[in-house]
Design a protein around this nucleic acid. Sequence first.
DNA 1: TTGAAAGCGGTACCAT
DNA 2: ATGGTACCGCTTTCAA
Lengths: 348, 348
Amino acid sequence: MRQRITVKDLARAAGVSIGTVDRALNGRPGINVETRQRVLSAAETLGYRRNKLAQSLGRKSQIKIGCVFPSRYSFYPDIEAGINHAAATLADHNVRVVSRRTENLGDEREGMFIDELVEAENVSALALCPSHSTRLNQKIDELAARGVPIVTIATDAPASRRLTCVSTDSFNNGQIAGDLMCGFLREGGRTVVLTGSLDVTDHERKVSGFSSVINGCPHGIEIAHVYETHDVAAECADAVTHALQTYPELRGIYVSTSTGASACQALKDQGRAGEVYLIGTDLFQQNIPFVQNGTIQALIFQNPFEQGRKAIEILYSHLSSDTRFGPTNFVIPSIITKHSVQHFRCYC
Amino acid sequence: MRQRITVKDLARAAGVSIGTVDRALNGRPGINVETRQRVLSAAETLGYRRNKLAQSLGRKSQIKIGCVFPSRYSFYPDIEAGINHAAATLADHNVRVVSRRTENLGDEREGMFIDELVEAENVSALALCPSHSTRLNQKIDELAARGVPIVTIATDAPASRRLTCVSTDSFNNGQIAGDLMCGFLREGGRTVVLTGSLDVTDHERKVSGFSSVINGCPHGIEIAHVYETHDVAAECADAVTHALQTYPELRGIYVSTSTGASACQALKDQGRAGEVYLIGTDLFQQNIPFVQNGTIQALIFQNPFEQGRKAIEILYSHLSSDTRFGPTNFVIPSIITKHSVQHFRCYC
DNA sequence: TTGAAAGCGGTACCAT
DNA sequence: ATGGTACCGCTTTCAA
């Protein structure tokens, strides 16, 4: 029966008190360099591993993590669900998660909410879905300097000093869509792409990933056009309609941003549903029927729930000082088909 | 600052000691029915929620969970990795996982190992990959009667009194493969299926799921033949070769059991790699190259790691008495393509 | 049947 | 710079 090494064992081994062991182990001030070294090497040789449960239980002050994200737009409700799930798991660990919802990605209260969480709520870490890739940089950097770690979710502020970004790999998302389209169009054919705006990094990367695979595909598939639809339903529908009329022989459509029902409806209205391959992105209540009736051949699902969950997990593990992760923290996208869609319930 | 309700609060509210509260809360003997009721209703009204951390930390005796599974065959190493991962996570919770490896699915030491774990190692729960769907029923039922909960992984003993089975939904696996094949063969065409043995429930269900989708597919796809290859590499290769020669116009192959390199190699040897659609099952070091070079169009991955992880998680949550799960506990299969295969590292 | 108290492995504060 | 000790919330003796 393998016995656990505890701080007491270390104290005995190093000939000090457990208070001192604690100082050494956690880099707290007020300890002699040599003493610290002695404790640390004892920990090393004895193979000490901190018990996270005891750590959480013994902590007097509770850890507060703040979150700011949009309330409705796109898949944010699913991110929120993931955050809440993590929060429930961490409740026993004396952690509390406080959230602020903005109306949409452009909401200028974003900065205000951040300040509020830090100043009033006194959170010791933040998870954000930044509405702009650079606008928050200064604020993020300031907070990072003050020792408030920040994780971005889904959207990023890559040039800031945020701890890491949790998201899917956009380019890879496009590649996977390309894999499928390439498989579907063995006989070659024309395709079009619908995206939000090529100025948005995430959108551009997806299109690039898709293009790279399509261009490397041996069956002579062509991308006839890339439509920018600005995430507006009407523009999506128009793009689909336009594509079908301009390229009557069109065989495939890749929708690289949230696939709304409007594009599907347009395809159906033109009598081409189930004939033109439609590969979409992300899952919503609205497009589930279109997956089930075969209008949407496949969806690349970015697992927003998992993204939210992971962000909180990362922040907590960072705060309890056992960090491990790079500058980006990718969540694996899932491919959804007619008979797998039921596994991926979503809240939006 | 929301304060946590603890046993002390309950003790005060019910006018008893915390020892009594513990007896009431955990159904321990030696407590008056009325007292128990008083405590329980106090817990109810105050909204008491047990702190799992404190529970683990306070537990004197460590919980031991035993596992028996094959060592090599198929994806068992990945299941084992998942089990070990869960074990590492639960280490802080004063839980220890003890494993016994059989040589293969037919190993008669399986029963012996189970006895050994229960009698000698004194485990309080078991996770098994039963080698036969009924042969272990009696033993499982006996142990269940003795209060040793058992979870089956990947393979099942459905008629036994096992707590639950963690696996993917075989029929659904086949359906998903069917979705893809149906998408690939828009122009119709002939396909064949390779499976282990139709006598094995799991294999039969996958074939059925695939067939159901193919038959419901509007493009007139035909399943020309179902080969039983008994999970023997040579038989797989022979089946592929035979199929290509018998049905020269063959357009698709669905391999519903672990897709070995042999089938891919046969396809390549016949000069049809990358032309005939090959949809396989599960990921192995050996077939990764074939996914990357386009011989395998897609894999239905049963996430063995997750299955192992989940089984242990379920057993632990059952032992610490907050159970929640049905007779089967499905893990969602993943669809793997050329550009997503790198996300799914495997150990076998 | 019930109560009191000693842990579990840490953290945090107060002495020294 | 160090030691000592009272927690955290629950489990588990041991008395009563």
